[in-house]
Design a protein around this nucleic acid. Structure first.
Length: 186
DNA sequence: TGCTGGATTATC
DNA sequence: ATAATCCAGCAA
């Protein structure tokens, strides 16, 4: 028994896994800094046949974690200044990932301190050092709880954010009326 | 070896 | 609406 999500949870269809992450808690223990955590309130799915997915054109140095087993982290650097956190889905050999777009942080924090993929990595102190780590290990510094911390919430499904391709999939899910979601618009 | 644009954010 | 800021990916 364990408190945290394990490999079988992640090694399923990306579009199934993504919305199931809503309400669960990410716990990140950067050993040199303060332990941080937050409840997932917004996610997006990226699959292999999708032009917007980093893995759509095959294996490269950057997207390599996406091709490995589910339950690993995939962290990339974007716009010269931000990191984005993903959890790898699908079995070994099949690329796929869920981008974590927003966390609700309890306590005295600003409710929008982690309301965006770049902001949440700054809040958690996540960097490339934690790329491709196995989040299913019991001693992993980065884990997700099995328990859902939100109750009686509704899920809204919409188009993804920041995708410039003509055809776009409705593969963004967020907790309805949650103050920590990245964008207020639909 | 050089160029381009991006799964973003804060500010104007 | 646009600057900040840099590197992966691709063309050559």
């Amino acid at each position: 028994m364990t408190r945290f999500l394990k490999r079988p949870f992640f090694e399923r269809d990306t579009l199934t896994v993504a919305p199931e992450l809503l309400g669960r808690e990410i716990i990140f223990n950067n050993t040199k800094l303060k332990k941080k955590k937050g409840v997932i309130v917004e996610v997006e799915a990226y699959t292999k046949d999708d032009p917007a997915c980093h893995a759509s054109k095959g294996l490269t140095k950057r997207n390599e974690p996406m091709f490995g087993p589910g339950g690993y982290s995939y962290i990339y650097f974007i716009y010269g200044m931000y990191f984005c956190l993903n959890f790898v889905t699908e079995v070994n050999g099949v690329p796929g990932a869920v981008l974590i777009r927003a966390l609700e942080v309890s306590g005295n924090e600003d409710e929008r301190i982690a309301s965006g993929p770049g902001k949440l990595c700054m809040y958690l102190n996540i960097t490339k050092d934690y790329n491709k780590i196995d989040c299913c290990r019991e001693d992993s510094p980065l884990v997700i709880t099995k328990t859902n911390l939100l109750k009686d919430f509704s899920i809204v499904q919409t188009k993804r954010v920041g995708i410039s391709h003509a055809k776009e999939h409705p593969w963004r899910w967020y907790v309805e009326d949650n103050k920590s979601v990245s964008k207020l618009i639909r």
